[in-house]
Design a protein around this nucleic acid. Structure first.
Lengths: 139, 139
DNA sequence: GTAGATGCAAAGTATTTGCGACAAG
DNA sequence: CTTGTCGCAAATACTTTGCATCTAC
């Protein structure tokens, strides 16, 4: 665990309010990828007076500041995740919605190569795999 | 060019109305990836009485039927594209919004391998590269 | 002839914003 | 103090839907 969200806010000059501290705390403790509603529910349990508008404003702010990343998985609401040094992509179970994080350096390298082939510098990418759990005997 | 959209509709038992024919035609002639608004505008030029609700209903139907695919690129509206045999991914110019289609078999293979590593059968995936055009002297 | 498609307007979602009150630095 | 944040409700953007009418097959 490198820096806490609070430390990142201080470092980037983001004013720390109670609401932001709570949202930061909830996101840090979430190992899943909550959408705004889920986040709002969790946050409400700590302080029931926080409004959903503040949650929206805060995740947006945190995203712009590089504290959170936003994922827009297929056909669902936007989901958020704390951004740490280690980049990873996602494998999503289409039946259960379970999300598995993975890293594959080779794919990363190839992506860069593809971009370069077309004369581009890769600045970002999105890779999502959608799968169903295999049974033992399946190919 | 394999089958026309009309042929696909017949093959799948989708009733062919004038509106659907026009939407099919416009999509076939579009080499970009129009969103519903853009599609609606193009379609309106041919028949100004088609309602946007029909456009929404039709792209959804065509998507379910495997005639179109939907893309949800970063922070934008849903975009549609005709689905042909050749699968490809997208490289998006973050400055201009230009979209380049590419295929990389090696990446495809690796994706499958990753899914398998976690005990999943890959049923779908999304790969988007976001880049900026390089100048000659850049690395 | 009948099931399904259309147009319209109204209703849903998800998200953003104007504004007066309030709090952080 | 002053600038930025908050809560609230209203507004917006995109998409879906109920219903009466119409049309493909």
């Amino acid at each position: 665990m490198s820096e806490t969200i609070e430390q990142k806010c201080l470092a980037k000059g983001v004013k720390l309010t109670d609401q932001r501290r709570i949202i930061a705390q909830v996101m840090s403790e979430s190992s899943d990828h909550p959408n705004v509603d889920e986040l709002y529910n969790r946050v409400s349990k700590i302080d029931s007076k926080i409004s959903i508008a503040t949650v929206y404003r805060t995740v947006k702010l945190f995203e712009e500041t590089g504290i959170l990343t936003k994922h827009e998985f297929k056909g669902g609401k936007a989901r958020y995740e704390e951004l740490n040094e280690g980049h990873h992509d996602h494998l999503i179970d289409v039946k259960t919605g379970e999300i598995i994080e993975f890293v594959d350096d080779e794919i990363e390298k190839l992506q860069k190569k593809v971009a370069e082939k077309y004369g581009y510098k890769l600045v970002d990418h999105k890779l999502e795999l959608y799968g169903v759990k295999k049974k033992q005997n399946e190919t």
